[in-house]
């Protein structure tokens, strides 16, 4: 099965926000973050660098959590009231990042929707539209709720999409990610089934292939390993000459928002399958640089939020 060719696979990426505009900036988009774990705290730190986003509220449940302490130190407004903080003051933000868990997000979603707030869901809940900026950034702004899939999904689906665009018949896609144990917090560990389910669903959606598999490995090695993701595809015949430039283009697009995304095994044909492997080195904001898994999903979410900010500026100058 192959996808309709919606885009020219070699066309330049569109919709990303240039980071060093010298034009006078409009007011920043106000965002709230629910969830003060690894993901939420790292998002908060990344938002401080953004030219178009401002973290107006950082919400946890335990006032003494490492994340809330860090946010307070950085001068970010905090609350330990959970979702109630937004119910009490929905005017404080235009956009909410939900960095809790899949089960929590299922409860938050109707509340946030009723409040008319746009949501970027960081959990593998599969409530909202699946968002992978390198593939579908321009189609996301219309959705009230978008879902960032998973770290492995952000690393792999663009490569699988590149294979789908250059090969008419792909029987099967497989994605294996290895991450450092230290980078996997309690929610990640409890949500391995949801991670697999969500990543496989994203692979099916973006490749159009019904047959997909996802595997996640935690590796406790010291010094910690960087996130690595391998994408394999079973194809009748491989056209690597056609695939390579499309993959290179895709990697360059991802590097615009994930600087540490690096191809370490370019597409090869081995054992009757196309195989390629990427490594993701994080920016080292909240967790050290080995936590590329944390970085890639957060960088993708920031790119999405910045695009939303851009769309709003175009539509209704503040």
């Amino acid at each position: 099965m192959s996808l309709p060719r919606l885009l020219d696979p070699l066309a330049p990426p569109r919709g990303f926000v240039a980071t060093n505009l010298s034009l006078p900036r409009p007011e920043k988009l106000k965002v709230a973050i629910i969830g003060s774990g690894n993901i939420g705290t790292d998002l908060m730190m990344k938002i401080r660098r953004s030219a178009s986003l401002e973290c107006s509220l950082f919400i946890g449940r335990n006032p003494d959590s490492l994340g809330l302490v860090r946010a307070r130190e950085m001068g970010v407004p905090v609350s330990s009231a959970g979702i109630q903080a937004i119910i009490d003051r929905p005017d404080l933000c235009n956009l909410v990042f939900d960095a809790t868990s899949a089960a929590e997000h299922a409860k938050h979603h109707p509340i946030l929707k009723a409040l008319g707030l746009q949501v970027i869901d960081m959990t593998p809940s599969r409530v909202g539209a699946m968002a992978v900026p390198a593939i579908n950034l321009e189609q996301l702004a219309a959705h009230q709720n978008v879902n960032m899939v998973s770290c492995g999904g952000q690393a792999s689906t663009p490569l699988a999409y590149a294979i789908a665009q250059t090969h008419a018949e792909v029987e099967y896609y497989e994605v294996v990610s290895s991450i450092s144990s230290l980078s996997a917090g309690p929610a990640t560990r409890a949500n391995l089934d949801e991670y697999i389910d969500t990543t496989e669903t994203a692979l099916r959606k973006f490749t159009g292939c019904a047959n997909t598999k996802t595997i996640l490995i935690l590796n406790p090695a010291q010094p910690p390993i960087h996130m690595q993701t391998t994408v394999s595809a079973k194809v009748a015949t491989a056209d690597l000459d056609r695939l390579r430039p499309v993959v290179d283009r895709m990697v360059a697009t991802i590097q615009r928002y994930v600087p540490g995304y690096q191809m370490i095994v370019p597409p090869v044909f081995e054992h009757n399958r196309i195989v390629m492997m990427v490594r993701v080195t994080g920016l080292g904001d909240f967790l050290p640089s080995y936590a590329g898994n944390l970085d890639i999903i957060n960088c993708a979410a920031i790119a999405t939020a910045e695009h939303f900010a851009l769309c709003r500026t175009k539509k209704e100058p503040l």
Partner: peptide, 29 residues
């Protein structure tokens, strides 16, 4: 065989990388 390397060197290098069960993809790299 495909990459014409000594399988014993490959095992020792994989050991240095502290690979765990299920990480067969790292062998190619």
């Amino acid at each position: 065989v495909q990459y014409a390397v000594d399988p014993r060197d490959l095992f020792f290098e994989l050991g240095r990388r502290k690979v765990v069960a299920g990480q067969e993809d790292i062998i190619i790299e």
